[in-house]
């Protein structure tokens, strides 16, 4: 087939809302965008283990400890599912990790905020996972097969995470005055960063149009942000916390909640690396990866010593070979 025919086949697949699979031909831009989006999503899951992971050893009841440990373990698993999906496009996970550590690839800026109290664990589950679910449910229909399938699995597991967080908050809100104050304080700190998780406003998001044309993105940033606000306000009311936005009010005409202006300057600063925890988050990841190098090397050396002779042959593999190497 000629390139034109391949492009037409690709376009038809997208137009018919069918999946692109790893061995299919795809435009270079699509492949690069997919690699970037999936890797960043994977990095976010792994970095996201840190703000909550800190509280596992400090959890104030054994039940909460078990729940939190399972949750953070899930996040490691989600990161791995997503790295797998990225690898079907011909990149190597170790290489992606190096790019993350070097600052060449990003992760969700929400994790650059500190988790200061145990209430943050609940609020992260409620707001951060809630926002993530809003983002992720549409991605279950992403045009790239492995990504869509990873998202389906992740979404199923993540709804438990959100409920875990909310349940903790409900318990705390019917607890001591100190617990209630802790929840309100955590809510005040995490609300605006959660809104920023949906990315810049539509009029400042140049990639959105192409991503939507390729079926990579199904809704715009502002659409998803509005959906999140509409879902979350009643949850806050049921919990008994106030959201730190004096401009938040129901608009009958629009049928949605109006809300205040996000501080986009702060968003840009944090994305650029100037957030409260950027250095710490990457630093921890780098330390774990570098300290673990001798362990990984030992396992590889042991395997090499005990390997059976490899079969030779000219195999086509299930993965696409890297055509030009990953971008960025």
């Amino acid at each position: 087939m000629t390139t034109v025919e391949l492009q037409e086949h690709f376009d038809r697949t997208i137009a018919h809302d069918r999946r692109i699979e790893p061995r299919d031909w795809m435009p270079d831009g699509y492949r690069k965008t997919m690699i970037r989006q999936i890797s960043q999503h994977a990095h976010s899951e792994i970095i996201g283990m840190q703000p909550e992971g800190y509280w596992i050893t400090r959890a104030p009841s054994l039940r909460r400890k078990a729940i939190l440990l399972a949750k953070v373990q899930d996040e490691a698993g989600h990161g791995m599912y997503l790295y797998c999906a990225a690898e079907t496009l011909g990149v190597d996970r170790a290489d992606l990790t190096r790019r993350l550590i070097n600052g060449d690839q990003k992760y969700s800026s929400i994790f650059n905020y500190p988790s200061l109290t145990f209430a943050d664990v609940g609020v992260i589950g409620w707001l951060v996972d809630g926002a993530a679910i809003c983002n992720q449910v549409p991605l279950c229909r992403s045009s790239f097969g492995p990504y869509a399938r990873a998202m389906i699995r992740i979404c199923k597991e993540e709804s438990f995470h959100q409920r875990q967080g909310y349940e903790l908050l409900m318990t705390m809100m019917s607890g001591t005055r100190a617990q209630r104050a802790m929840v309100q304080d955590a809510t005040n700190r995490w609300w605006w960063p959660s809104l920023m998780m949906f990315g810049p406003p539509d009029n400042d998001s140049p990639n959105t149009q192409q991503s939507m044309a390729w079926g990579i993105k199904r809704h715009t940033n502002d659409e998803l942000r509005q959906r999140f606000v509409d879902m979350t306000v009643p949850q806050a009311e049921a919990l008994g916390v106030t959201l730190p936005d004096p401009d938040l009010r129901w608009n009958d005409e629009r049928g949605h909640y109006d809300f205040g202006e996000v501080d986009w300057a702060e968003f840009k600063r944090v994305i650029r690396g100037d957030g409260p925890c950027n250095t710490e988050r990457i630093g921890n990841r780098r330390t774990a990866h570098e300290s673990g190098a001798w362990v990984r090397a030992a396992a590889a050396a042991h395997a090499a010593k005990h390997a059976s002779p490899a079969t030779s042959g000219n195999h086509q593999t299930v993965r696409q070979s890297a055509q030009g190497g990953p971008d960025e």
């Binding site: 283990m49 596992i56 373990q73 921890n284 330390t287 774990a288 300290s291 190098a293 362990v295």
Partner: peptide, 11 residues
């Protein structure tokens, strides 16, 4: 948690 030598070992 968060310090294991490889992601699979985290799990």
């Amino acid at each position: 948690v968060g310090h294991a030598p490889e992601l699979e070992e985290e799990a």
